[in-house]
Structure formats: structure tokens, C-alpha cells
Design a protein around this nucleic acid. Structure first.
Length: 166
DNA sequence: GCCAACGTTGGC
DNA sequence: GCCAACGTTGGC
């Protein structure tokens, strides 16, 4: 036992994420109105695992508009709570109802996200692609990427924020 | 465990 | 609206 720090809980580094939302479904303006929003309806195992294993209150979030005229990062948010069971999976009236999920072992989880601010100007996917080299490894830029919840490195997060006009 | 079929995502 | 890419399902 030469390393004393082994016995201490290592402080966890702040996490950075990108969340996609279709503005017709839930826009950054809608988030600004709600202030805090339960991020429910995620039905993808990889995205769920990020929420379950890695997303913690306080983590920073890039809010992205997808499936629209100008797919863009449009705002900033924070993770407001860690993962809890997503109730919509048990609601037969919900479009996210999952009849094969058992209450004693919920399959799907949700987190809360809190509005931080809108960007002064959206940072479009087109612009992001112009920085493909420094943004190498950013999942959003991967071909055929469909993840709605994805990690962003701290370096990429900071670089992206520098693309916002003053 | 393989893989074809199918449904969905999402940029264009 | 098109279609590439991907995840899921289910037959075998």
C-alpha cells in the first residue's frame, strides 16, 4: 500500500454530454420555460447506460436540435439529478410504454436536466464539421450516429464553446 | 450465435 | 421525401 490515495474516494471529474432533441418535440425554448425537465423516453441501451453509469448532477450538457432545418447546438444545460426509473415505461397511455419492462426491474431510466442558457447563436453541425480535426472523436460527428445521449470530452466541450460568437 | 428483415433516426 | 446507417427482433 504505497499509494495513500487508494484509500480515499477519488473526486469524480465533471462530466460533459450532448443531448439531442427535436425542436418540434422539445426545444431549447421549451427547456427555458420548464427550467428543469425529466429526460424521459430514452429507449436505447447505450444512452441508458450513460445515464445510469456516468451522468451525475452538475454535469454539463450541450443541448442539440436534431431533425430540423439547421441541426445545431443551441444551448447549455446541467444534469440536475442522477438516473431514476423512467415512469413512462409503465404507462400504457404513453408512447414510450414498454410492456416487457417489469416494475421490480425497470429497464429504462431518466435523468433531470436544468436549463442554463441559450447560446448567443446556434453552432450548426456544418460549422462543427469544419472543426472535424480538433473535434476528432466527437460522437456527434461520427457517420450514422444516432445516439441521443452521448459523452463529450472536456477539451471538445471547451473548444465548442469558443465557437460561440461574443 | 448468426444474420436477414424490419423499424427508426436524422442529415440532406 | 430519400436513403444510409444503425439497433432490435426473431427464426433457425
Amino acid at each position: 500500500m504505497s499509494n495513500v490515495s487508494q484509500n480515499r474516494a477519488a473526486p469524480r471529474a465533471l462530466g460533459h454530454w450532448l443531448l439531442k432533441s427535436e425542436p418540434d418535440e422539445f426545444s431549447i425554448d421549451a427547456l427555458a420555460q420548464c427550467e428543469v425537465e425529466p429526460w424521459s423516453g430514452v429507449r436505447n441501451y447505450q444512452a441508458r447506460n450513460f445515464m445510469r453509469d456516468d451522468m451525475r448532477a452538475g454535469d454539463r450538457v450541450l443541448f442539440y436540435h436534431s431533425s430540423c432545418a439547421q441541426p445545431s447546438i443551441v444551448g447549455l444545460a446541467r444534469v440536475a439529478s442522477g438516473a431514476v426509473p423512467d415512469r413512462s415505461q409503465f404507462d400504457p397511455q404513453s408512447e414510450y410504454f414498454d410492456p416487457s419492462s417489469r416494475p421490480e426491474l425497470p429497464r429504462w431510466l431518466q435523468i433531470d436536466i436544468a436549463f442554463e442558457r441559450k447560446l448567443r447563436q446556434p453552432i450548426s453541425l456544418t460549422v462543427l464539421r469544419q472543426y472535424a480535426e480538433p473535434l476528432q472523436g466527437l460522437a456527434l460527428l461520427n457517420r450514422g450516429n444516432r445516439l441521443s445521449v452521448m459523452p463529450v470530452s472536456r477539451e471538445h466541450f471547451r473548444l465548442i464553446l469558443t465557437l460561440e460568437p461574443k
